[in-house]
């Protein structure tokens, strides 16, 4: 299983990766996670790779081989879309964070990215993670809401996931993250804007 997280520095991609990595450890013989630290974390683009299987050598995912792309921000999901294999799953937060060149007017935020996703050969789940997190009491747990959505796509049983959340999140944030995870996990397919998924279901 190859999962790529595409995010903006500061959105909590490291924590999400650690939850997924911790889950993967309960599921597979081998797990590797590749993180980004340092300068890029200051509001720049960050990608985190998670791979688990019977045998894993490279900690980074090859282009065109990610099974899931977990995008914490629309533009960042778009930037990493070439990592996803055809037929893969895109879970993307509907959040938009304007990069500096857009803020200063030197560039424009590409319009209609969500629509372009839906016309690609993959299954897209667009999640209003920021609003959900805000309703839960802290916009910072948008990452864990998205991990919850991912978890449901990977397995029907949340047990290992809940264990992973408990293990990866510092005690003082644990309850809120648990809630956020459960919320994301419980999000119904129908409440998620996924035209292609519905199409696929209609066909089957």
């Amino acid at each position: 299983m190859n999962i790529l997280i595409a995010a903006v520095g500061g959105q909590g991609a490291l924590l999400a990766a650690r939850i997924i990595g911790s889950y993967a450890q309960l599921e597979a013989q081998q797990v590797k996670v590749s993180e980004i630290h340092g300068m890029s974390q200051r509001g720049g683009s960050v990608v985190t790779h998670i791979r688990y299987s019977q045998e894993v050598h490279s900690p980074v995912i090859e282009m065109g081989t990610a099974d899931v792309l977990l995008g914490f921000e629309i533009l960042e999901a778009a930037r990493s879309i070439q990592y996803l294999r055809p037929g893969g799953i895109l879970i993307v937060s509907k959040q938009q964070i304007q990069p500096l060149p857009v803020l200063t007017g030197a560039a424009t935020y590409p319009p209609a990215l969500l629509e372009s996703f839906e016309n690609m050969p993959m299954t897209t789940y667009a999640v209003d993670a920021l609003s959900h997190a805000s309703e839960l009491g802290n916009i910072k747990v948008a990452n864990t809401v998205l991990v919850g959505v991912l978890a449901r796509r990977l397995s029907a049983d949340p047990n290992h996931w809940q264990e992973a959340v408990a293990e990866s999140v510092p005690a003082r944030h644990r309850d809120l993250n648990r809630k956020a995870f459960d919320f994301g996990f419980a999000l119904d397919f129908s409440s998620i804007d996924s035209r292609r998924h519905r199409q696929k279901e209609a066909l089957s």
Partner: peptide
């Protein structure tokens, strides 16, 4: 043959790191 990415989007604005 190498794994190929068929999913591509036209040039996107960069997101450099910034002062907080």
């Amino acid at each position: 043959p190498a794994p190929e990415s068929t999913l591509k989007l036209a040039s996107l604005p960069v997101r450099p790191p910034v002062l907080c």
